[in-house]
């Protein structure tokens, strides 16, 4: 089986600063790659370079063997801030690209948008504008909008960072369902439990370098690199709060 996404010696520099240093990664169809690491490690930059939103200084990004470009349908991206268009209903947010990019007749595009919204549990809310939806619902609309275009690879850039714990859960459940259905994805997240349970492989980035790329059991099960262990220890100390007796 050939990889659906190939990242080869990817580099990104801004001035003298090396954001990403020769990152290579093959993603097989149906894989869910969890990307973790400290802030400023290059996680979001990696996703943005793969998406083509940030220019790369060296290397290649290939989807099914071809160089991917933003908007060519190969890669879909879900952003931290949802980025829904506020003047359009949820349904129109999903249907717009189907109509104007794919040239789909309005009726078919609307039906496909409804189906995508139903898939993320929002079938009844298609007529609402983003302002009338919760943060979690908005992010689910954003996922539906990306899904409707049927990309080969789906990128999630900290999809729950702007949400409270309850809303986070509803978005993570949707991503989990998509991963289980075989959608190929890369997910940048600070939700370690989610990454551990979702991913087929976990990539730990630090200072623009892949420190470790291994199955979640290995990374989270104590078999990680020293830098990874330090990072996870800090994380666990923060979340494992107990009330003093």
């Amino acid at each position: 089986m050939n990889p659906v996404l190939q990242v080869r010696a990817l580099e990104r520099r801004v001035g003298d600063v090396e954001i990403l240093r020769r990152i290579s990664l093959d993603v097989m169809p149906g894989e869910a790659i969890g990307v973790i690491g400290p802030s400023g490690s290059g996680k979001s930059s990696l996703l943005r370079c793969i998406a083509g939103l940030d220019p790369i200084s060296g290397g290649d990004v290939l989807v099914e063997g071809r160089t991917a470009k933003p908007g060519d349908g190969a890669i879909g991206m879900v952003f931290q801030q949802f980025n829904l268009w506020p003047h359009l209903t949820a349904r129109d947010n999903v249907a717009l690209a189907l109509k104007v990019v794919r040239g789909m007749p309005a009726k078919d595009a609307d039906a496909k948008a409804e189906a995508a919204l139903t898939k993320v549990g929002l079938g009844a809310l298609g007529a609402r504008k983003p302002a009338a939806l919760s943060g979690g619902q908005q992010q689910r609309v954003a996922i539906a909008r990306t899904l409707a275009m049927e990309p080969r690879v789906l990128l999630f850039d900290e999809p729950t960072a702007a949400l409270d714990p309850e809303l986070t859960t509803e978005v993570l459940d949707v991503i989990r369902t998509l991963a289980a259905s075989g959608v190929t994805m890369l997910v940048v997240s600070h939700e370690m439990g989610f990454v551990a349970s979702l991913s087929t492989r976990v990539v730990f980035l630090d200072h623009g370098v892949v420190v470790q790329a291994a199955p979640p059991g290995e990374v989270f099960g104590g078999g990680g690199e020293p830098r990874v262990k330090t990072f996870l220890k800090t994380y666990l100390e923060r979340v494992a709060w107990t009330k003093d007796a």
Binding site: G71, I75, G76, M77, N83, A97, V101, R145, T146, M149
Partner: peptide
């Protein structure tokens, strides 16, 4: 605008 770009507009 980036969302529009990614969707191919």
């Amino acid at each position: 605008l980036e969302a529009a770009r990614m969707l191919g507009l």
